[in-house]
Design a protein around this nucleic acid. Structure first.
Lengths: 230, 230
DNA sequence: CCAAAAGTGTTGAAATTACACCCATGG
DNA sequence: CCATGGGTGTAATTTCAACACTTTTGG
């Protein structure tokens, strides 16, 4: 074989090599009323999936890459814009879509509690614990996304994408607890997030109800930084 | 919009949606004579890439998924079989391949020092520090793979795929040092790998040259386990 | 007996965990 | 004045990093 990369593909590739369509799917998560929740949309692809739920997604078009495609589909199909996205995994099993060969690049997306979305009536947020069996292989995609988020929240500042710009330390701790699925010690949590410079206090206070007002914090860095341990 | 997932795609998808081909590429790494090395192949896709090096890869076919495709291409194009593979990232930029739209699912693959490969004359192992500019976006793919390996070796037993079944603790430490790019303390290293039960001693000794023979070890688990810290 | 690589412990510093009470506010 | 959630420190334990010499073998 003369050339180990080129499969004899001219430009553009002949039709028989273009048998697949490429899609993107979003496992879009947020913490909603203390529960880790996922954005799902109605799926009605008869005869295979009738009146089911699935993740938000759709095809990649010729003039866009996967990142651009996922952004577009989230905006047009769920009214969700400007949220955090990171690539999760490419799902490529031959029969993962009963309609034909579809290879899907899945994304882990994170939104804060205040994000709208689901306003499209065909899309809504649902607690992860309550999701029924989803269409296609979307159960697998969702499970993969939750595992990834749990792993990442422990050693990066990724949680910033689950919170508004300013938040109390109690908000932050609740977010961690919802994602991880277990309680944390309040004093140790506060000590740690400050010491590792995850957050910085603004002077401001949040007054809410009949109790001592809480200080508002921000994440120190907007870059996704890898910090060591939490 | 009635259906948020189906883009109006019938079965099978119409031609204009099947504009892309889907490929796989392998960032295949091993530690060769103490140096982290990558498997590269000749690329000659005139007029864009003349006599260049690139990663081993090729197209996905209609009857296989990405995992199967990467296995096939490594075997047929580099004679490399039965090595460890994990999906790395899907690269999908519109013009990443000058010949046309190619979306590539990249893999991180690991081999032990004894693996053959490169016997095909068109494929060979090259120290990562010495690789010239590669074809396509393969520099980016390689960089991504090395970062991933460095991160993972620190908290998983993934290093097992870089070593033969039995090895000395010195072999193991050399492997870690080659991947990480810095020296480690011998006593602390040995203490840690035993305490965390990464490896188990076989009674056997390796006699080599005029020096005290070393005990041979194995990895305790063949599953990819996530251990905490190393 | 010499060269070469294998093997082995201790100590001081730093980090981690567990744990309970006082504070500030609004109603 | 009381109910609510916010905020704080310390001591015991564990973990981590730095460091040098003895052992075993083949030639």
């Amino acid at each position: 074989m003369e050339n180990v990369y080129n499969n004899g593909m001219p430009s553009p590739a002949p039709k028989h090599l273009r048998f697949a369509v490429v899609a993107v799917d979003a496992a879009c998560l947020k913490v909603d009323h203390g529960k880790l929740s996922v954005l799902v949309g109605r799926v009605n692809t008869k005869p295979h999936y009738v009146n089911r739920w699935g993740l938000i997604g759709g095809l990649i078009l010729p003039n866009e890459n996967a990142d651009e495609a996922i952004t577009r589909h989230l905006a047009t199909k769920a009214g969700v814009k400007r949220i955090y996205k990171e690539q999760l995994y490419a799902f490529s099993d031959v029969d993962r879509d009963p309609r034909g060969r579809v290879i899907s690049v899945a994304y882990l997306c994170l939104a804060d509690d205040t994000i709208a979305g689901g306003g499209e009536a065909q899309a809504k947020w649902m607690p992860v614990k309550d999701v029924p069996k989803l269409a296609y292989d979307h159960d697998l995609v969702l499970r993969t996304a939750v595992e990834r988020l749990r792993a990442r929240i422990g050693y990066t500042n990724i949680a910033q994408h689950l919170l508004p710009r300013e938040f109390t330390l109690t908000n932050l701790q609740n977010t961690y607890e919802a994602v991880l699925g277990h309680k944390l010690d309040k004093r140790n949590f506060r000590k740690k997030v400050q010491e590792v410079k995850l957050v910085t206090g603004t002077g401001k206070k949040e007054h809410k109800g009949a109790s001592r007002p809480a200080e508002l914090y921000r994440f120190s860095s907007k870059e996704t930084k890898t910090i060591e341990i939490l």
